[in-house]
Amino acid sequence: MSIPVARPRRPAQPRAAVTSRQLQILSLAASGYTASQIATRLGIQPSTVHERLHRVYRKLGARNCTHAVAIALTIGLLDADAIELPAPRRDAA
């Protein structure tokens, strides 16, 4: 039995049409911030964060936020160095 391979979705708009603000929001989402945290940080409403993320999904042909981040990293719209990583945990042994 073979596993079906999903065909890539075509973006609704050219990828270059993703704005710098949309990329900023996507980068913050990739760093693990919630819509409320992003909104507070940028001085906008959480609904605006959701709206801008959904526009990015459409523009990139992504199914969700994780997919949008993967596409943006792959095509060079996001730099992996711009994504905040959590500090390593120091578990007591």
Rank of each mutant, 00 (worst) to 15 (best):
S2Y: 12
I3N: 13
P4L: 10
A6D: 10
A6E: 11
R7C: 08
R7K: 15
P8M: 00
R9I: 10
R9K: 15
R9C: 03
R9G: 01
R9H: 09
R10C: 09
A12D: 06
A12H: 08
R15P: 02
A16W: 04
R21I: 05
Q22V: 01
L23G: 08
L23M: 09
L26K: 02
L26E: 00
L28D: 00
L28R: 03
A30R: 01
Y33I: 04
Y33W: 09
T34R: 12
A35Y: 03
S36V: 10
I38R: 00
A39I: 08
R41L: 14
R41V: 06
L42V: 08
L42F: 03
I44R: 01
P46F: 05
S47Y: 11
V49P: 02
V49N: 00
H54E: 08
Y57H: 14
L60E: 01
A62Q: 04
A62G: 06
A62F: 08
A62Y: 06
R63T: 11
R63V: 14
R63S: 10
N64Y: 11
N64K: 09
C65L: 11
T66L: 14
T66K: 14
H67F: 08
A68S: 11
A68H: 05
V69I: 15
A70C: 09
A70W: 05
A72S: 14
A72C: 08
L73V: 08
T74R: 15
L77W: 04
L78N: 12
L78D: 09
D81W: 11
A82N: 13
E84M: 12
L85F: 07
P86R: 07
A87V: 03
A87R: 07
P88E: 02
P88H: 00
P88R: 02
R89C: 02
R89N: 05
D91M: 13
D91Q: 15
A92G: 12
A92K: 14
A93F: 10
A93W: 05
